[in-house]
Amino acid sequence: MTGSNSNHAYELDSVTKVYGSGTTAVTALEEVDLEIASGELVAIVGSSGSGKSTLLQLLGGLDRPSAGRLALDGLEVGRAGDRELAAIRLRTIGFVFQQFNLIPTLTAAENVEVAAAPLGLDGSRLRDRAAAMLDRVGLADRAAHLPAELSGGEQQRVAIARSLVNEPEVLLADEPTGNLDSATGEQILGLLRDLWRESGMTIVLVTHDPSIAADSPRVIRLADGRIAGEDREPLTATVVR
């Protein structure tokens, strides 16, 4: 584990990810070199099968690279154990999924609490934190509703509140507007940008929507598991503030 540059949230050096083995092996990512600075908002774009979701999973510590080096805040993910990765995901990373991935039996508030429960907070602090996060995403009045009783946009707001409840340094969003109509998608993207500007956290968005990418200060294009290009506007949340 190394910490070569404290300004970099992520450092990827020749990262390769191969699924399967032998004749059935599929290379999802190949020799990816990438650095993402703390506080950056990065959009990763590419067609289906380009490797963008795989890259997001590696960045999120959900999987380990088959080869190469991937460091998050100096911690090499490939060498971290399961418990260490779980702790990173709990405290350092927030996830937003395309399908929202809310727990259907829990209310909106409980779906936010579920992310903070492993921190061992007492019941009232946990509830207060969840309420504050729901308030932040504009859903204070929907706290007691089950996911099935919420619209798609509301569900994604709950998912964003869940991803933020532990005040992570990095927020990873996988097609966050993929299941929403364009107007709702715009609202969600607006919310994410507002959060980015207010918190200064690093946000990595995976999307196939060029319009979303166009509004991002940095766009990384993936094709066939490799970085095919990059458009960079050196703006960070800090600069914006």
Binding site: L62, D82, A86, L90, I93, G94, N101, I103, A115, N166
Partner: peptide
Amino acid sequence: TRELGTLKAIGWRQWL
């Protein structure tokens, strides 16, 4: 599977 995978993704340790 999705629910339990999500729990793990957001930082729930295996034993939890």
